[in-house]
Amino acid sequence: MGGNSGNSVYESAGAALAPVESSAGVVIRTSNLSRRFGRVEAVRNVSLEVPGGCVCGLLGLNGSGKTTLIRLLLGHLRPSAGQVRLLGRSYQQDEPGIRERVGYVADARYLYEWMTVSETLDFTRAFHRTWDDAKVRSLIDRLGLPLDRKVAELSRGHRARLCLTLALAYNPELIILDELTAGLDPVVRREVLKNVIEEIGREGRTVLFSSHSVEEVERLADQVAIMHCGEVVVHASIDDLKQSQPAPMTLEEIFFKLVGSADGGRERR
């Protein structure tokens, strides 16, 4: 094998391991981010950097601060201290610019219950210049969304699929998903994940998603960030994390080693 190909081995393997596109740079950057609710510090001093093109899974027990961190990232909550920059901008500088380029699914996503699915799509479409009609049609087909049904009458599964369609419809560069598959049955879950995977396969997409499921993080993510008591206690590539253990360990074992048993951690609420 020649020196040149040896070089390209290194470069391409590195790209697969920690895909950093030079042009994309760091897509999510928080510095010393904190948020308190009264006496409780739900997110504490989080400094996180997620490079462009990377899929980062956010793992943590209930009440570890995942959802608060995501709400801070989405600008749905103001930080008590520290900063958020998405795609190189802060909300103070350019909130509309961020909203155009970030798609999200979160529990708190506001839907008008009295609208039908197709009215919801038309309504949201009006806010996005980059809305992709062809993509929306194919998502509706594949996900089997009932266009004439009222949002109030949707099952949990259909609701999640509608939210995912809304999040992907305008081809955002950064996609943030909070517990996308929580409460979904295995068939719907698989279908939803397949669509997320297809999206990851597109050029230059960065994804941050939170999940209870270690398996889901393992399958989907390049990197994992583990939260415990409001802090990010580990942020690393999953393969590196596994291979850095003295003996072979599953991600689940590493997770439990870090956060302890459910009752071993400090009670947050």
Partner: peptide, 13 residues
Amino acid sequence: AADLVVNPNTIAR
């Protein structure tokens, strides 16, 4: 990637 429900970066690697 779609069949196995695994990140395409992993398959590429």
